[in-house]
Design a protein around this nucleic acid. Structure first.
Length: 420
RNA sequence: GUGGCUAUGGCUCAAUGGUAGAGCACCUGGUUGUGGCCCAGGAGGUUGUGGGUUCGAGCCCCACUAGCCACCCCA
């Protein structure tokens, strides 16, 4: 065995996966262009306090999942576990509030969370992320969901489900949590240990519980949608009517409780098949208090993160094939040192003419070199031996029908251009 | 952080406690300079690591590490 191996939860993206990544990135670009979102990239490293403050001290991400370290200057840094806090930092730091609102941005790149890996979950993963900053109209909530849906449709997804909920706001959420605690406290004896913990630590999580004993209790548990304040109630009902206006089917799921502290009002998830138990490919919501929390002016915002590794898994499951990678259609083979020099030069000329060409190195037999052409699935193999060099020609072999045509060296580029 | 399963050539996997194998991939030959199919040959392993039991361990036991799956939680 090799002495070095991947760090736990990290993956190599090998050739079979790359066509998916290329395809996905291309569709992301097209979709964000279509909706008028602009790319904004932030560093992988931020001050750890940004996330502690932004994501929330009690969250799992901050409490037990962040990659933290002190750098050589003694600064306390974190590998970003999510995008939103960094983008809000960039928004504030670069004075982006001076741009005409709402600001629509997207980004992509690696995120890091020290979790236990499993299907569809890695310690380094990539997300496609969208943020709309500076607008509280539920119409942008719908726009963001629509953008996600558009992308998934363009990628060839089917069978996706959209779940929405409202998580309230600082006006109504605390009272609801109290109602919930009161409700479950009367059944505290019936709750499994995990849910007793949740009741104390994070009561909203009970809604999400998969414990069997808890399920019957959940049916009559108070729902946040019955306890929203006027403003949140209006926002949620408009969200639903706007979704209906664009014919986007949704499921109201009062159990959606997102794990980050900053969410207010709208939260949503999109789920796909084929992913095992980690089946959410897109999750997000509104964070109207976050920018102020991070030191900016009170500014509403909404966004989502969407796991690209999960796209690849789910697309495979659905049988969606990405376009194959474009490979060189020509190989250049030679026999003998004199021919090698000519071959090197010819391969160079072909590429200069924008014809994909691969030199077959190693002074191997023509047999081996043509084998390489075959493996590459090349359309043409150019053969340069002593005879060809003496005649100032190249032998161009059509790999499909094995026909070989002598072509003057000076004509090879134009000959191929006509036929590719 | 918890639990279950797993770990043998590059990959996928065999091997009643008794000489580590196959398929695929790779290289060479079968053609003085010609791919795919076929045939022949070759290279590639201290069986994840460290201990233990045994005359003898890939196989049994323990620990560690890693992977997979699930919980927690999330994308």
């Amino acid at each position: 065995m090799t002495s070095y191996q991947r760090v736990t939860g990290m993956r190599d993206v090998l050739f079979d996966d790359q066509p998916y990544w290329r395809y996905i990135l291309e569709k992301i670009q097209q979709t964000t262009d279509l909706f008028g979102y602009r790319r904004l990239d932030t560093p992988v490293l931020e001050q750890a306090n940004l996330f502690i403050r932004g994501v929330g001290e009690g969250t799992d991400i901050v409490e037990k999942e962040m990659y933290l370290f002190e750098d050589r200057d003694g600064d306390y840094l974190a590998l970003r576990p999510e995008f939103t806090a960094g983008i809000m930092r960039a928004y504030i730091e670069n004075g982006l509030h001076t741009l005409p609102p709402p600001l629509r941005v997207w980004t992509t790149g690696p995120l890091f969370r020290h979790e236990r890996p499993q299907a569809g979950r890695y310690r380094q993963h990539s997300q496609f992320d969208i943020e709309v900053i500076g607008e509280q109209d539920p119409a942008v909530d719908v726009e963001v969901i629509s953008l996600a849906w558009h992308l998934f449709t363009a990628l060839g997804f089917f069978g996706l489900r959209l779940y929405i909920n409202s998580t309230g706001c600082p006006q109504c959420k605390p009272a609801y949590i109290q109602t919930l605690v009161d409700y479950f406290t009367q059944f505290a004896g019936k709750l499994p240990p995990d849910d007793q913990m949740r009741l104390k630590k994070n009561p909203l999580r009970i809604l999400d519980s998969k414990e069997e004993a808890t399920q019957p209790l959940l049916e009559h548990a108070p729902r946040i949608t019955d306890h929203l304040c006027k403003e949140c109630e209006t926002h949620f009902s408009k969200l639903k009517s706007y979704l209906e206006a664009i014919d986007r089917p949704y499921i109201v799921d009062y159990r959606i409780v997102r794990g980050l502290d900053y969410y207010t009002k709208t939260v949503f998830e999109i789920k796909a098949d084929g992913l095992g138990s980690q089946d959410t490919i897109c999750g997000g919501g509104r964070y109207d208090g976050l920018i102020e929390e991070l030191g900016g002016q009170p500014t509403p915002g909404i966004g989502f993160g969407s796991g690209i590794e999960r796209y690849v898994i789910a697309l495979r499951h659905l049988g969606v094939m990405p376009p194959p990678e474009p490979l060189p259609q020509v190989t250049v083979s030679y026999l003998g040192e004199a021919a090698k020099l000519v071959a090197l030069k010819l391969a160079e000329s072909l590429r200069e003419a924008n014809i994909g060409a691969q030199f077959t190195p190693g002074d191997r037999s023509f047999k081996a070199q043509l084998k390489a052409a075959n493996r590459l699935n090349a359309k043409f193999a150019i053969i340069l031996g002593e005879n060809e060099i003496n005649a100032g020609q190249a032998l161009v072999r059509d790999m499909a029908n094995s026909e070989q045509t002598p072509v003057d060296l000076t004509e090879v580029v134009s000959w191929l251009t006509e036929r590719l």
